[in-house]
Structure formats: C-alpha cells, structure tokens
C-alpha cells in the first residue's frame, strides 16, 4: 500500500477510469493544458487528448449542462468545478436537470455525471471563495453527495462515482489536496453510502466529514489523554443519503453525540444528524446532542477573524468537556 497525496489519488482514479472506458471524459476550467488548479488531472491531457480532457470556458452552468447532456447518451463525464463557490452558477443544471431527469422521465433517462469541486475555507480567500456548500447539495433529492476525508476515500469514491448510474457530487477540500495517506495498490471502490468509524470509542460520538473528521480525531486524542474521555469518531463520507443506521448504531453505543461541521450551522449536516438521532434513537441519549459549527458570517479576509469563524479541534474538545461537565 503506497502513501500518496489526495490530489494524486484523484488523478489516479481519473486515469484508471479513462484508460478502461473511452467514454469517460473530464472537463472543467484549466484542467487540460494547465493540468488542473489542484493537479487532479495532471498529465491526462497529454495522454488522452483534447476530445476527452476538455478545457472549458468559464461557463459553469453551461459546461455542467453540456456534461449532463453527454451523459444522457452514455458518456461518463467527470466535471471539475474549480471552486465550490462557482458551483452556485451550475445549480440550475445540476439540480433541475441531473438530479431530476430520472424521476421525471419515469426512469427512461439518467444523468451519470460526476461533479467534483473544491470546497471549504483555505487561507484568507474571503467571502466569495470560502463557501461550504455541502448543505445545499445534500438537500436535493436525486443527487448523491460524498465527501472524502482521505486519499483512500478520494480515490475509491471517485472510482465508484464514475461507474454509478446516478449523478454524484464529490465535495473535496481546498486544504486537503496535499494531504498524504495510504491508498491500496490494487483497484479499490469505496461505497457511496454508509459511514466509517475512524476511531473506536465508548463515551461520546464525534461525527465529522471531510476536513472535520481530522479535527474530531485530534480532539479525541486530547480527550483521551487529558480528560479520560474515550470518544468515537464517525466519518460521514456520504452526506446524501446519510447513513441513518450507522449514526444510530454509534449513538446507541456511546449515548452522546457532537456533530462537527466546517459550515454555518443553519440547515446543515449538524442539524440533519441531530434530526436523525431524534428520529432513530432519542431515548438512548444521555445528553442533548451538540453542534460545533462555523460562525454565521460571510468568511472574513482578516486572518484572525477567519480563524475565529471556523471551528477547530479545540472547539470540539471544549464542547465535549462542557457536555461532561469537565
């Protein structure tokens, strides 16, 4: 098992799928000749040519719709939207066309597109380049939403997403492309549904996804070492549909839940997981579930303000300590 970077894992998945199936293409801004802003398509233009590695104009809704139309006829486009902030512009095609076409055609037509995008906050990118939009995507029926927290997931989720007949949105993270991790040498397909226990524990469950899984793991180590609290960490790599059974199973074991999200709290992953806990296993709870979320502000440019707007492992530790009265 080799250790590779997140971007390399995504690149490898692209390469293998394009090698296997001539109808797999990739498209997006700067992905071809320039090699991709995050290098996720590096070298593919040279290998597969301009017909299959398509540098698009800056027309997010247009090229997303074009990819969806191509997918109607069996093409499997992997569409990169450079930054999730630009995906707002592609919402029309993604939601109105891709997510709904199977249903509104009575199962005649499907849109097997993959849309990948870099989300999250990075370093002082300001209000219009720091959106965390997973909450928007996961609220739309007909769209699968996954979000890799490691190179292994980034590789395996993309592999499965390309082959799945449903449209899949993959929420990546601006700060994670250079993260290293082990990826199986052989082909690996990660499930598009479910959740993973990233750390076994017994006292409280910390639910995270994408970058917040790492905050949770870090917090769990501190909690164990300094406060004797044994936290379980559940990685919600699938945001739509969410793993109701997996969420409930962990809460039944620990009886306490903290949901950690990089996004603003309203109508988000935390709210949704709390609702699931209430619906599935309310009587198992020993304490009210808690959210650790971003401040409800457009992202500030100032570094200090930006840091204050986004949660971190310390905030998770503080939330758990409060819950335990420690």
């Amino acid at each position: 098992m080799a250790e590779i970077m997140y971007w390399e894992a995504i690149r490898r998945a692209h390469d293998e799928e394009m090698e296997r199936d001539p109808l797999v293409i990739c498209m997006g801004e700067d992905i071809g000749v320039a090699g991709g802003t995050y290098k996720a398509t590096k070298g593919l233009y040279e290998k597969y040519g301009a017909e299959r590695v398509i540098d698009t104009p800056i027309s997010e809704n247009g090229y997303t719709g074009l990819g969806i139309g191509a997918s109607f006829l069996g093409v499997r486009p992997i569409i990169e939207i450079m930054s999730v902030n630009f995906a707002w512009l592609a919402m029309d095609q993604l939601f109105n066309s891709a997510a709904k076409v199977r249903f509104m055609s009575g199962g005649q037509l499907t849109a097997p597109v993959v849309v990948r995008s870099a989300g999250g906050t990075a370093h002082q990118l300001g209000a219009q380049h720091s959106a965390r939009m997973e909450k928007v995507f996961m609220g739309i029926a007909g769209l699968r939403v996954v979000t890799p927290s490691s190179p292994r997931q980034a590789y395996g989720l993309l592999k499965s997403a390309v082959r799945c007949d449903d449209p899949v949105y993959i929420n990546e993270h601006e700060l994670m492309y250079n993260m290293k991790g082990e990826v199986p040498d052989e082909e690996y397909f990660h499930p598009l549904e479910g959740s993973e226990v990233a750390r076994e524990g017994s006292d409280v469950t910390l639910f995270g996804y994408n970058v917040s899984v790492h905050w949770c793991v870090q917090a769990a180590q501190t909690l164990a070492k300094q406060y004797g609290i044994n936290a379980e960490v559940v990685d919600l790599y699938a945001l739509a549909p969410l793993d109701r059974a997996g969420i409930a199973a962990s809460v039944r074991k620990t009886h306490r839940a903290v949901i950690v999200e990089e996004a603003e709290p309203a109508v988000g992953v935390g709210a949704e997981v709390m609702a699931i806990i209430n619906e599935e296993c309310f009587l198992e709870l020993d304490a009210a579930p808690v959210r650790v979320s971003a401040a409800n502000v457009p992202m500030p440019y100032n570094h200090g303000l930006e840091k204050a707007a986004i949660p971190n492992a310390g905030d998770v530790v503080a939330a758990v300590r409060k819950m335990f009265g420690k």
Partner: peptide
Amino acid sequence: FPLAAGMAKAV
C-alpha cells in the same frame, strides 16, 4: 441549450 450541446458532444 447545454443539454443539446452535450448530446451532440456524445454523438
């Protein structure tokens, strides 16, 4: 509009 262009791309 873009869906039609996409179908044409596939063809």
